[in-house]
Design a protein around this nucleic acid. Sequence first.
DNA 1: AGTCATAAAGTCATCTAATCACTTGAGGAC
DNA 2: GTCCTCAAGTGATTAGATGACTTTATGACT
Lengths: 231, 231
Amino acid sequence: MTSVHSLRRTLSSDLAQAVVALVESEGLRTGDPLESVKALAARFDVAVPTMREALRRLEGLGMVDFRHGSGIYVGPNAGRRVLANPLQSRPDADQLVELLEARRQIEPSLAMLAAEVRDPAGIALMDETLAQAQAQIASGDDRLWLTNLDFHRAVAAAGGNSVLVEVLDSIVLIHAEDQREILRLHGDADDDHAEHAHLADCVRRGEPEAARDAAYSHLDHVVEVIRARRR
Amino acid sequence: MTSVHSLRRTLSSDLAQAVVALVESEGLRTGDPLESVKALAARFDVAVPTMREALRRLEGLGMVDFRHGSGIYVGPNAGRRVLANPLQSRPDADQLVELLEARRQIEPSLAMLAAEVRDPAGIALMDETLAQAQAQIASGDDRLWLTNLDFHRAVAAAGGNSVLVEVLDSIVLIHAEDQREILRLHGDADDDHAEHAHLADCVRRGEPEAARDAAYSHLDHVVEVIRARRR
DNA sequence: AGTCATAAAGTCATCTAATCACTTGAGGAC
DNA sequence: GTCCTCAAGTGATTAGATGACTTTATGACT
């Protein structure tokens, strides 16, 4: 059952690994420029098209960005271990339910950890996103759904475990575009916000069980809304 | 906080997406052959190197495999939404602890779901990996650590939620190579196996709370073993 | 009939070279 | 100082070539 596929080494796979090692050894971060394709090809003594193929591998993973006319930059996924597949198609109705059920299973344990650890940066992010959501509800801002995603990320961040942050972020990203529709179907942004606020309170107060239950009932509610739509 | 990076469309990114759509529309699965690079280039009316760049993006994600002299095949990650970054370096000691703590937080909820759902395929896999592990312990087989990974995957599978299976698999893959060392440090394969067997019993019997606690104490034990090594 | 060896065709892997589109920085004019 | 223009550098895509690998077809032998 252990995954078995092509293990043949190619220059492009070795080069991709070498670029990752270079990014790490030079302490580069998202947004930092790398050498140009031509310079990298020279550094590793390969042809430009071969270097480009290697860099496209990295680009597919979000580890580098090509900027036309400007150069190659370290991408948003540099240093990240768990990823959302950027090329997977939008979930259908069944898959969306499954996704939300997965969240309903996982997020309570993340909320619990958040209430135990109460990482200050995560707490600050929770507060920030709650305030922003409040303002967006008041002004009818269309971007509320994005802010709600950020709230969930912030809860994960309050647990102080970067792997869990990546996991939650990956799950959320898979159906990011659907969140807008979910919010619309929910039909009550104030109610949704109140559930978020209650969860945040439990986390802030350091009540793991309450936080777990708040996260569960919030996600359970969302699952029910989406289930209802499927009938 | 929402990720912002290059949104400029290129042929290679459009082509990558088009190949994914082609794989889906033709119902292709891991291991199935695609058309040759040359034929794909002709199909999409682009030059071969451009097609190759697009396919390298997909290769980076594990969605296609290039086989020298043979052709392009659908890769192991086709259809998969949550991935482990194949190019991330091995975790250092701190990161390994963080990873295991993440598992300690998540796997109890997966075990709980497994005990609630008891998906037959997942249960069968659990039984199979336990029996295999038993045989490997008896014969001193070096591959025990691989089988133990499969056991954890099987528990996730028993929950019947494919997103959670991918999540668990991704987390496990991040530190796959370290599992060998973890098992060595644990020093007691029989004890480890007994913990697995106990967890499997709870799942089989449909006891969610017991399964959750079994998973937690098992992972907690592993975390302690690794922490001890760090001192 | 089946098996084995060889050659040809097809395919990937890497390279060289060219042209076009975009960005950045330097220099000059005001 | 600011603004504009141009040149240099950079990515994007194409065309073409050679070498390494795999698969298939054909012929010879048993």
